[in-house]
Each structure stands twice: as C-alpha cells, then as structure tokens.
Design a protein around this nucleic acid. Structure first.
Length: 840
RNA sequence: GCCCGGGUGGCGGAAUGGCAGACGCGGCGGAUUCAAAAUCCGCUGUCCGAAAGGACGUGUGGGUUCGACUCCCACCCCGGGCACCA
C-alpha cells in the first residue's frame, strides 16, 4: 500500500490508494458518461416540474472563447443545480450559424460557407463539452438546417399575409465598391469596413417586419419581467414613447393670411406650451411636400440643399464641427402660427428627420438649441416663452419656469401650460393629442448569400407573391461563385433567380435578399421545445410546457435588439395562432453577464494565466477554470482575463481532493462514538453552508459561494488537525454535504470523489441537500460592545439574551467601565444579541 | 448633451444602517526537504509604539443618525447606453 499524506499535516497516516487529483483523466471520462447515459436529456412527457435554462444562441466562431466559457459555465451550474432540485430541466443548445464571417471567409478562400460553418460548430461543440457543459444534444438547432429554414420562411409568409411583413423604400448604407447594403456596424467612420469605400445613403426597396405595431405592448410588458433594470431601461429608451400634439400650420398667402385651399403643414411637438415662441417652421429635406411648398425663386437653392444633405457622409452628419455645413435653407413659403396668427418663414433643415413624427416641426428657438442655432444663422426672431432662472447663461432654455410672452398662458408652469395649450388646440380643431415612438420597423432584408432566403417571388403580372408552401424550404444553390466585391452570388445565379409565378404560371424571379440573422434568433428558443415536429413549426403543448424560459443568460450586448426582436416574435406568433395565445413574453428571468476583456497591460505569465480557455483546461482542468470564472467577480461585472485565478482554484481542488479522497477511517486520530461539542459545531456549520450556498446560487452570488467553500474547507482542515481529532461520521457527512453543494459548480471532481466514496454512485443523480432548520440557529453569539459607535469589546452571550441582560453585560465590561470612569452613560442603545452601543 | 452603473488594502473582491477588508491572488516568516517543487502552519490596510495598545481609514466636501462603505445633498473621476427623436 502506498503511503499517502493525510489531509491535514502532510505527514501522518495512510489512506486508501486513491492517487492524485488528475483532471485530465477524470474529466473526459465523466463527460462521456453524461453523454452516453443521456443524463441531461429530457422527454416532452417528463413528469417533473419543467424548468427551462437557456444560454443565448451562440455564433459558431470555432473553439469557445473565454466569454462563451463564462456564459456557459453559469448556465451549466444552473442546469445541474435545478436537476438536483428535482426539476425536469430543459437545457438545449443551438447555433446562430448564418452570417457574415462565413461569407467573408468564402470570398477569401473559396470554401463554401456551409463547410466553413459546420466545422466551426463542431469545434465549438467540442469545446463546450470539454468545459463540462451539458445539453440535450438531440434538440440541437442550426439556423442553416433546411428544417429550420423551412419554418423561418413559413413564418415570413404568415407575417406577409398578416401585413406584418412588407416592402418599402428606406434609406440604407450603400457601399459602391461592394455593391451591397451594409449594416450599421459594418460602417466604420463612414467607410465600408471591407472595401474602405465611402458609404453612401441610398433609398432602396427593402423588406420590413412591422414591429412598431407592438411598440406599446413591448413597452408595457417590460414592467413585469424579472430582468435587470438596466436592460428594461435601455429597451424603454429604444422604444422611445413620447406624448405630444400633432397640429396643422396653415400655409400663408402673400399677405400672410392662412390659405384654406391648401392642406396645412402637419407638425408634431411635445411642447405645445411654447407655441407663442414659434418664429419659424422646419421640414425635413426628404419631406414629400418640399416641391409643393418651395417657391420658384428658391427652387434651385432648395434642390441643391436636398442633394447636398442626401450625399452628406456619416462623418459630416456626426461631426461636432458642423459649422462648415449649411444646416438649413429657406423654402420661400410661409406658414401661420396658430397661436398668434403671425406668418412665419418655412425652412428645410437637416436636423429634422422624416422618419420621426410628421417630418416637420414648429421651431421655438427660445427653448430648443437646434432651433436657436438656425435662428441665429438666418437672423430670425427669438422669443423666450419660459423664463429662465436669473443665473442662466445658456442660449435655448429647456427647463421649467413660468411662461412669459404667451398671452393666456403667462404665469403657468410648463406642465400646466402644456395641458392648457393642448386643450385649446383640440377645442379649436387645430391639433390632436398624439403618441409617437422612436422605434422603427425592423429592416429584415440583407443583400447576402449566407442567410435564410426570403421566400418571395416577383411576377410582372401578379406583383409580389409568396412562394408556394410546397416549395419550402427554398435553399440557396451550392454551385455559386463568390465575388471578390462581396456582392451576393444569388443575384447572378440564373437557376435560383428564375422561377414560375405561383399565381399565373408565367415566368417570374425570386427575391435574392436573405433574412437578417436576428430573425433566426428571434424564435429558436420556441423550436427547442419540439424540434422534431415536421408538420408544424411549433407544438403547442410543448411550448406551453416549457415557456417562458425560466432563466435566460447572455451578454449585455444583446440588451436591445435580440431581446426586443424575440419579444416581438413571440407576441406576433401568439397573435397569429402559432404559439399559445397567452404567451406574451418569452423570457421570464434574464441574466446579463458582463463581458470578458482582454486587458493587455496587466497580462502576466507569473500568475499562471493561460491565453485561451482550451489551454487552461489542458493545464489546470475544466473544473479549475469553471471555479476561477465563478470566483473572479460578481457574474454581472465585466472581467479581465487575468482576474481569473485559475492556479489558486486548482490548489483548492487539490485540497478538496486530499480531504475527500482519503478514507475517513484512516485519518489520523479519527474517532467514533458520541460526538463532542466540537463535532456538533462542524455539523452545524455544514447545515449553515447548505443554507448559505443555496441562497447564493439562487441569487447568482457565485463569487461569495466559492469563498464559502474555501472557508469551509479551511475549517475542516483545522478540524482534522484539532486536539481530539475528527469524529469519523461527522467529518464524512460534512465532506459529503460539501461535495453535493459543489457538484453544480465543479461537476467532474465532485462526481469522481462521490463515486470513490460511495461505491460508484452518481452525484448528479442525487437530490439537493436540505438544511435542518434547528441547526441554523446558534446558541451563543459574539456581542459587540461599542462606546460612542466605536468597538471596544466583544462578549460571548447566549443568542436569546434579553435587552436588559445585554445592557448590563455591556456596562460591566471592564473596557467600557474604564472609558466610563464612573460617569453615567447618556444613552445606551441595545440591539440584542448582536450589539450594544454606550453613548457617553 | 441626456439616461444608467460604479469608485473599498499591492490586486480581484466581501460587508446594503450595527465588528470594514470575508475568501482568493500576491508578499513575508516558519515547518518539511540534501535541495527545490508541491504541501502544511502563521502573519499581511496605513501611521505611532519594544509591546500592550492607540489613532486614522471605503473618490472629495457637507448632512441625517447613538452608529454611515451603506441613506440624503453637492462635486470630482471611471465605465456603459442613447445621441440632431422636435
């Protein structure tokens, strides 16, 4: 028999031959077992309480990067924890496998995006497996699976039929070099990130999903979600609801009187209280009535201005030194200010956006800085209608104050005046209360190859019609050549392009745009509940069983778009009858973990940091990496790679191994028989640990949970070393309990140790330990005695000590008496049993 | 500019009205060793002090309270989101 170190002092006793902790050996073995046994597969008729834990649909970029690993470690902990709690946990995984990187790679290397992508999916799958993350792999979805494309297209057609999908002209980022539309994130400093061409704004016909129909519901339903406030706030701002008034400004004739034969110009304002300060009006350069309202003598200048704004690059538009560019131009027309009947000039200006409100505004330079600047540039009247405070030295004043220069509004506060002015406008029939949202419809078309083809057909006779359902899925052809420019090969592929109109049977051509990949990720979590259904996209009973997702986990970078689109899709599918009617929200709880930064400066080899998760697993083991991730920071915080103290965590796992792999009977001096007070204290501590860790797992306080395990282990080492030696059963129970609590965090080592200690039993099939409430209360506590709020003494007292007794114990303390020096305290605050504060 | 979040030892962090710095990293000392690694034990906020002990200490300044890292006001700094949205 080999002489093994006892856990405590490294020198005495012998243990069963269990060997050293070798993660490289045990981890692959358990990973294989979980897969072979289908430990984390769940059937749709499972009788346990359903619990859906989901990490955000990853883009398959090859082996997992550290951000992935952090994300999936949190998710995996919850999957295993809830499984031990007796839940029927649904833990699926899929891949957001369409998208630009694969297409760019194809352009460069000629390798088909599918081959490229499938390879990366295999790599990611393998690395998730190596960190011990477990899934029901039978349910895996990939966006480019024909089966998934089919239903994605089927939904598009349903949306089209319901008016939720439509085609309209929209300004887009156009790269003249690549001859394609760019997403905003592909535009860097006004240039195409691929070809470096200056990006132009072009009006092109594009497909949209009508998410704005759901603006109000998307806003209202945020209230009840258990989501981080920050995310809810970002969504609220994005939706941007504003309440105001839409009013008509009559067009003035040559003598300044309102014309009745011409439609008034409709403007939207949230500040009807400032109406008397409106000294001009402004239309967007793209406003459809520009031609009509431009006078002959101004036509050349207006046209030039429109063209100039249209071609203005992003750089100019965002420049803070915009003084160089002309921001507005006079139309030559005038409109009438309905508040005071005065004729005022009508301008075009680039700061008025066609896409918001009515595309025209009443300009109130006294209260709006942009209007102020235009007024100064054109030497227009500026009338303050809100009195700024005496010390105000700015230009336009947007704050609150008494109304001035406004006849019947004078003296009111801003909000009162708003209400009064709104009522007046409505009574006069001049305006209507209106709610406006900042949210725009979702542009879903992309001029890309590697995406889900939009299943529409263009026929010269029948117009735009959906592809027949029997043709779904419509797949992109394989025999394509990628253009170095980045232009989608679909646009030149005759076999794909030419088709027959399902309406008239005549020749027609296919849509070559593909769907934004955010569409793919807008409903994948629903399909996971029954990916096997070939008759329907979703199985109602399965969706009902598992949705909403109990815990959704992902990066803060998806706070707005992905989560908003997923919410919209769920609502739309429910309303169209494809998902349960009452499923209004897909994700009940959301956790957004922080990002992992790759800080350069603090990078240090001496800390034992490897540069990739793969290497870390290789060197220290998956459990050590997982523990380091959990320990480093609160999960919501951003973290630097070098903050992971993998070596320290590996050291802890070694300590755990030596403690738990050593047969208790062989630990030097271990006792049997009646437990002593010291033994009971260990037992109590272990019950308290159960209580503590359970709470911390529920609250995502993983970093403090790890601290708790380390502290408890230190305590057990002290216990083993203590004078009387450890009580055999007490020690064994304490170790067992800790292994169970650790199992969700470090699944391999705990599984191995448990099997070693319990005849091959599987720890992940055990149920979660329960603390005995009687053992959570302690008999004595340390009472802090303060003098004037400063700690001067600590006294052990019974935990049920009365206030009076606590008071007298405190006052008889020598240290307190010394400070009192015979005087009577002014006041004694007693918070038994924890604290007494003597005020002198 | 507007809206959020945050500033605590050499470092990551803990404590959300009641013992500031849990736990870990790093550092120092000791045990073990021929030696080293590994392991085990102890110490480790700053200042004064031989020690006992004391004073100071959670971005800055004020306030509330018997008591403030924690609550309130003002300011400074860092991070994030939105950004001509009328």
């Amino acid at each position: 028999m080999a002489q093994r170190a006892s856990p405590a002092d490294g020198s005495h006793g012998a243990a069963r031959e269990t060997g050293r902790y070798r993660p490289g050996e045990i981890e692959p073995r358990w990973q294989q077992r979980w897969l072979d046994d289908g430990t984390y597969e769940i059937e749709n008729d499972d009788r346990r309480d359903a619990h859906y834990v989901l990490s955000m649909y990853p883009y398959p970029s090859g082996p997992a990067h550290i951000g992935h690993v952090r994300n999936y470690t949190f998710g995996d902990l919850l999957v295993r924890y809830h499984t031990m709690r007796g839940k029927g946990v649904l833990s699926p995984i899929g891949f957001d496998s369409f998208g630009l990187p694969a297409e760019n790679a194809a352009i460069e290397s000629g390798v088909h995006p599918r081959i490229f992508t499938d390879q990366r999916i295999d790599e990611l799958t393998a690395s998730l497996r190596r960190i011990g993350a477990v899934y029901d792999h039978r349910r895996t979805i990939r966006s480019h699976d024909p089966g998934y494309i089919r239903w994605n297209q089927w939904f598009f057609i349903r949306f089209f039929e319901a008016g939720l999908a439509y085609k309209a002209t929209a300004p887009v980022n156009w790269c003249p070099g690549c001859r394609t539309v760019l997403a905003n994130e592909q535009v860097v400093d006004g240039r195409c990130e691929r070809s470096d061409h200056l990006v132009e704004r072009r009006d092109l016909s594009q497909w949209f999903y009508r998410i704005t129909d759901y603006a109000q519901e998307l806003l209202d339903d945020l209230d009840d979600l258990e989501w981080p406030n920050r995310v809810k706030l970002m969504q609220r701002n994005w939706i941007g609801r504003s309440e105001g008034v839409e009013l008509g400004l009559p067009i003035a004739d040559a003598s300044g009187r309102a014309r009745t034969d011409v439609e008034p110009l409709s403007v939207y304002t949230t500040r009807p209280d400032t109406g008397f300060g409106m000294t001009f009006a402004v239309m967007s350069p793209e406003h459809p009535r520009v031609d009509e309202l431009t006078t002959a003598d101004r036509r050349a200048a207006v046209t030039a201005f429109q063209a100039e704004v249209a071609n203005r690059s992003e750089i100019d538009r965002l420049s803070t030194e915009a003084a160089e560019v002309e921001r507005g131009v006079l139309t030559g027309s005038s409109v009438v200010n309905p508040f005071n009947g005065k004729a005022i000039p009508l301008f075009l200006a680039d700061y008025v956006l066609m896409a918001y409100g009515t595309g025209a505004v009443m300009a109130v330079p006294g209260q709006d800085q942009r209007d102020w600047e235009l007024a100064e540039a054109f030497d227009l009247d500026i009338v303050r209608t809100v009195q700024p405070p005496d010390d105000f030295d700015g230009e336009a004043f947007a704050g609150d104050g008494p109304i001035i220069n406004s006849e019947w509004l004078n003296g009111l506060g801003v909000s009162e005046a708003k209400a009064t002015a709104t009522e007046w406008l409505e009574r006069q029939g001049l305006g209507t209360r209106t709610v406006v949202y900042r949210l725009r419809d979702w542009l879903v078309g992309r001029q890309r190859f590697w995406g889900c083809p939009i299943p529409m057909i263009y026929c010269d006779d029948c117009g735009t019609v959906p592809a027949p359902e029997s043709d779904l899925p419509i797949l992109a052809p394989d025999d394509v050549e990628f253009h170095p420019t980045g232009e989608s090969p679909l646009q030149h592929h005759d076999g794909f392009l030419n088709t027959i109109c399902p309406g008239c049977g005549g020749p027609a051509r296919r849509e070559t745009d593909t769907l934004d990949t955010f569409v793919d990720s807008a409903w994948y979590f629903l399909r996971f509940t029954d990916p096997w259904n070939e008759e329907q996209p979703l199985t109602m009973s399965a969706v009902r069983k598992f949705l909403p997702v109990d815990q959704y986990i992902g990066g803060i970078e998806h706070a707005i778009l992905h989560l908003l689109y997923a919410r919209f899709f769920t609502k739309a599918l429910a309303d169209l009858g494809h998902a349960p009617k009452d499923l209004r929200e897909p994700m009940k709880r959301l956790f957004t973990q922080g990002m992992v930064r790759m800080g350069g400066s603090k990078m240090s080899k001496s800390r034992g940091n490897a540069v990739s998760p793969e290497e870390s697993v290789e060197v220290h083991g998956a459990d050590a990496l997982r523990l380091a991730i959990l320990q480093a920071k609160p999960p919501a915080d951003d973290v630097d790679w070098e903050d992971f103290q993998i070596q320290g965590c590996e050291r802890f796992l070694n300590r755990l191994w030596r403690l738990a792999a050593t047969d208790p009977e062989l630990i030097n001096g271990s006792r049997t028989g009646q437990p002593t007070a010291a033994d009971d204290a260990i037992d109590t501590a272990s019950h308290r640990l159960v209580d503590r860790i359970t709470g911390e797992y529920e609250r995502w306080a993983y970093n403090t949970a790890v601290a708790g395990f380390m502290a408890f282990t230190n305590r057990l080492y002290g216990y083993v070393r203590s004078d009387g030696g450890p009580h055999r059963e007490t020690l064994a129970d304490a170790i067992d309990t800790m292994l169970e609590l650790l199992a969700p965090a470090v699944p391999h080592i705990t599984a191995e140790l448990w099997a070693l200690r319990h005849d091959g039993e599987h720890i992940h099939e055990r149920s979660w330990p329960v603390a005995d409430p009687d053992k959570l209360t302690v008999e004595t506590v340390t009472m802090v005695v303060q003098v004037n709020g400063k700690v001067r003494d600590r006294i052990e007292v019974a935990s049920d000590i009365s206030d009076a007794a606590a008071r007298s114990r405190a006052l008889t303390s020598e240290k307190v008496a010394a400070r009192l020096a015979g005087a009577t305290p002014k006041r004694v605050i007693v918070r038994a049993p924890g604290l007494v504060n003597v005020v002198i």
